[in-house]
Design a protein around this nucleic acid. Structure first.
Length: 846
RNA sequence: GGGCGAGUGGCGGAACGGCAGACGCACGGGACUUAAAAUCCCGAGGGGCAUAGCCCCGUAUGGGUUCAAAUCCCAUCUCGCCUACCA
């Protein structure tokens, strides 16, 4: 008898997988097995992992091991998303070197991953802050630059005062910084952008290829891209004749325009009011609104306000002059920054018009009313369907069905044209921080802006001892004079480096390509990736990560992948990087600080350290519990005492193998038809096949590890019930062998250490992965006889026992003959008998 | 305001038109033990009764479809996530 001692066996098997190279992917070009690229979103090396993080890696590991067991050539790499603010903040707060801080954390976290027994092809590991890696992140910037997809402009951008850096739109959450929640301000700054808008339509269209992605993620991306069809209509400023185009999705209401609103950021405002009596008031208003935080400005409760500019604009369709206002509800980021206001048919315009006593003009008449709708009777905007009125040549056109007609009219008369507008903005990629890849651009007095040629990459970060990390609103690199001074790659003259760095998001946009093609270090690091490797491994067959990346990382990655594809660097590949996506739920725990169920985090004080769980129960227990906790796509609550239950189960399986291994040592697992088995042995044999079927289905189709484990528990429970009786004869012992081997193999991907150990105890000398996935026989899963429920008028009244292939007449006869059923029917007449074979009988009686 | 998702025992959950509560946690009883831990066995949705059994009620609420609804449809409530003055 030996006891289950995870602390002893787990390091042993981890070392075994290492030395065997179990997780080393083979070259798909020469390996006959089908490839499977299984990728878990790589972590930011923040310091230590908690059990909540573990879910991601454990699920990924189960999938990888399952696929390997099934005979796939699996690529399962791991690395580090290592540029970013926490490292720099550590530098600011306690003078740590961001590089050292990062690599120390990587060391610690590598050890943690290893202790979980998650298997990776460590030969492909890198951190995005490695010079050998960020050289190619910079190269990707140059690819975009050369294709006209990277540009610099001065624009009102989101600024986080806490992080002292610009943020992308995608990084602003509820008006606050995605990282620190500080309210974001708008600032006019010169920044670098990627033209993701140019790919908006393709990013939207290709969502339809992603059938193996969660619906929610696709919806979120579609909403983020935010396509809307409408028209761009050319208004002009009265007097100056300046064009002032607007975007609208309701050109059918164009005749109802009674004023126009400009966003406070609109560039034309200062010019339009200069020297007029309205200048002071407008300027004061604009300044006040622009000082508000994005959160304050866009609160639902924020009242609409505005100010008249003193100017008028001309509506091209009817020549009407209407007042031009500046309003806080007009957004510079959307459309043209100018809104044609139709208060009768737009709720925001309606509220604004009421407040400032601006005219309201009905141009869409609802149908089926006894008297026409008038402006006076409106208490809110009428936004539903109707017929256009007061609309000149288009009177009588249906709305909104007739919108195309309106657009055609505008086009013919050169007043406007059909336009598709997207909500998505160009991606702001420059950051005023140190710990990122420097943007590979230099500014030459003679030649202007120059991208750094490939042969001069990488542009390395200066050593940290020359850098003052305290945020100043400009990149810390701007103060390193010796680093900034350089020569122009074109004329050789004096030039200065760009001092902003690239957003970390760009680093994580292509890491899966580098994993697929580990090019090498130093001298051999001659390209970002080899086309042949990409063609072999891409797309990622299964991507696993948190839903919080639904827009940011997953949208950026799709964009960059498409650009690299268009640039011809990827060869013949599927047009999307990630074929299937799985987003797992978070693990939560009651926080004593807030008294609420919260996502595990250090600041909430509710983390469970995996090291402690592993030291007490072992990694396999943590793995099993994490998988058993609930459906993996849903959030779950960590429960310390339930962990003990998972441990108990492993101990039980161990004891079962330990007890019977000797008795069955010389036997083969039972492989017969079941006909020769005793009435004791047959149920266990059948349960073994049923469990195999259930576990296979649950992993294959729905990733329901919780019910898969429940099925194995049922098998183990039945084993406990029958094992002593079965040990009496040889047939029985063969069934015991089959049950134990199957249990072990089904558990293999989930709790690999104990499974390897049990596999050896059962007399095998190869890794359990090499044993392959157990198969099952549908015939063997069939019960000899089944209990069918019998209902009378839908209520359960009894049972009949039949063979699975009993025909409907037989079943009906048996059911009606049952004493209890007869009592239930009583004096009523049987009208109808419904027999659902294998399930139940329902007798309708009245 | 919009979009998506979810509401099932004391708890996590299962079933996803066909016997509600698999599996586990916590709990109660028993065996082993001087004792405890560990382990093993048994019990358990709620209520009732003429208590080897039988009956009633039960999947947020109210309706509907169906022989049959936790599951499908409509309405309502609650919670969660995402998004938000998008013209």
């Amino acid at each position: 008898m030996t006891d289950y001692n995870p602390q002893q066996i787990e390091p042993k098997w981890q070392a075994f997988w290492d030395s065997e190279g179990t997780f080393r992917a083979a070259d798909p070009a020469t390996d006959p097995r089908p490839k499977f690229y299984c990728l878990v979103m790589f972590p930011y090396p923040s310091g230590t992992l908690h059990v909540g993080h573990g879910r991601n890696y454990i699920i990924g590991d189960v999938v990888a091991r399952y696929k390997m067991t099934q005979g796939f050539n699996v690529l399962t790499p791991m690395g580090w998303d290592a540029f970013g603010l926490p490292a720099e903040n550590a530098a600011i707060q306690r003078g740590a070197d961001p590089a050292k801080w990062t690599y120390d954390n990587i060391g610690r976290m590598t050890e943690q991953l290893r202790q979980w027994g998650v298997g990776y092809d460590w030969s492909r590991e890198f951190a995005t802050c490695d010079v050998d890696y960020y050289k190619w992140t910079q190269w990707i910037f140059t690819v975009l630059y050369k294709r006209g997809l990277a540009y610099r402009k001065k624009a009102p951008i989101n600024w986080c005062p806490q992080c002292a850096t610009a943020l992308a739109n995608e990084e602003v959450v509820e008006g606050g910084c995605e990282r620190c929640r500080t309210p974001v301000q708008k600032r006019d700054l010169m920044q670098w952008f990627f033209r993701i808008t140019e790919y908006a339509q393709r990013l939207l269209d290709d969502l339809s290829l992603l059938g193996e992605w969660p619906e929610t993620v696709r919806t979120m991306q579609a909403n983020w891209i935010g396509r809307s069809e409408g028209a761009r209509i050319d208004f002009t400023v009265e007097g100056t004749g300046q064009p002032l185009p607007v975007f609208t999705t309701r050109p059918d209401t164009l005749w109802g325009v009674t004023f126009m609103s400009l966003a406070p950021e609109h560039p034309l405002i200062s010019e339009l009011v200069a020297g007029t009596e309205h200048e002071a008031e407008v300027t004061a208003f604009v300044d006040r609104i622009r000082r508000q935080s994005a959160a304050d400005r866009s609160m639902e409760t924020t009242e609409k306000e505005g100010v008249f500019t003193g100017r008028y604009v001309i509506n091209p369709v009817n020549g009407e002059r209407v007042q031009l206002w500046v309003a806080n509800y007009a957004l510079m980021e959307y459309g043209t920054g100018a809104v044609m206001a139709v208060p009768a048919h737009d709720q925001r315009d309606f509220e604004f018009a009421k407040k400032y006593r601006l005219p309201i003009k009905v141009v869409i008449q609802p149908e089926g009313r006894d008297h026409p709708l008038t402006a006076d009777e409106l208490t809110e905007a009428y936004v539903d369907a109707g017929v256009m009125i007061n609309s000149g040549p288009l009177d009588g056109t249906a709305s909104p069905a007739g919108i195309p007609e309106v657009v055609r009219y505008l086009d013919e008369n050169k007043m406007g044209r059909a336009t598709i507008n997207y909500r998505i903005r160009d991606w702001l990629v420059s950051r005023q921080r140190y710990w990122g890849a420097p943007i590979p651009v230099v500014y030459c007095d003679n030649c202007g802006e120059q991208v750094v040629p490939d042969d001069q990459l990488p542009v390395k970060l200066p050593p940290t001892d020359q850098v003052d990390f305290r945020p100043q609103g400009v990149s810390p690199l701007a103060a390193v004079e010796s680093w900034i001074r350089t020569v122009c790659p074109t004329c050789g003259g004096q030039a200065r480096r760009e001092t902003d760095t690239l957003a970390q998001w760009l680093c994580s946009c292509w890491y899966y390509l580098r994993f697929a093609s580990p090019v090498g270090e130093g001298e051999s690091n001659t390209q970002a990736y080899r086309k042949e490797d990409i063609e072999q491994w891409m797309p990622v067959d299964q991507y696993i990560g948190g839903v919080e990346h639904a827009v940011l990382h997953l949208l950026y990655s799709r964009f960059i992948f498409k650009v690299l594809h268009d640039a011809g660097t990827l060869g013949e590949v599927w047009p999307e990087p990630f074929k299937a996506l799985f987003t797992q739920g978070m693990i939560c725990k009651m926080s004593e600080k807030t008294g609420k169920l919260e996502k595990m985090s250090k600041s909430k004080g509710n983390v469970v350290a995996p090291d402690e769980v592993i030291a007490y129960y072992g990694a396999d227990t943590q793995r099993l519990y994490t998988l058993f906790i609930g459906p993996p796509q849903k959030d779950a609550e960590w429960n310390d005492s339930a962990v003990a239950g998972s441990h108990r189960f492993l101990k039980r399986v161990w004891a079962q193998v330990d007890e019977h291994a000797t008795g069955i040592a010389t036997l083969q697992p039972y492989a017969g038809s079941g006909d020769d088995l005793s009435s004791e042995a047959k149920p266990l044999w059948r349960k073994t096949h049923q469990a195999t079927r259930k576990v296979t289905d649950d992993i294959e189709h729905s990733w329901q590890f919780n019910t898969a484990i429940a099925a194995i528990m049922e098998l183990s429970n039945l084993f406990a019930d029958k094992s002593h009786a079965l040990a009496e004869d040889e047939k029985g012992r063969q069934v015991l062998r089959l049950a134990l081997e199957t249990m072990t193999r089904l558990l293999g991907p989930m709790v690999p250490h104990i499974a390897e150990e049990l596999w050896r105890m059962l007399g095998h000398d190869e890794s359990i992965i090499a044993a392959g996935w157990p198969s099952y026989d549908e015939q063997a899963c069939r019960e000899d006889e089944i209990q069918m429920a019998v209902q009378v008028n839908g209520k359960l009244r009894g049972h009949v026992t039949v063979t699975p292939d009993a025909d409907e007449q037989t079943i009906e006869k048996l059911a009606l003959a049952d004493e209890k059923i007869q009592t239930a029917i009583g004096s009523a007449t049987v009208r109808k008998v419904i027999v659902i074979r294998g399930r139940l009988v329902n007798i309708v009686a009245k």
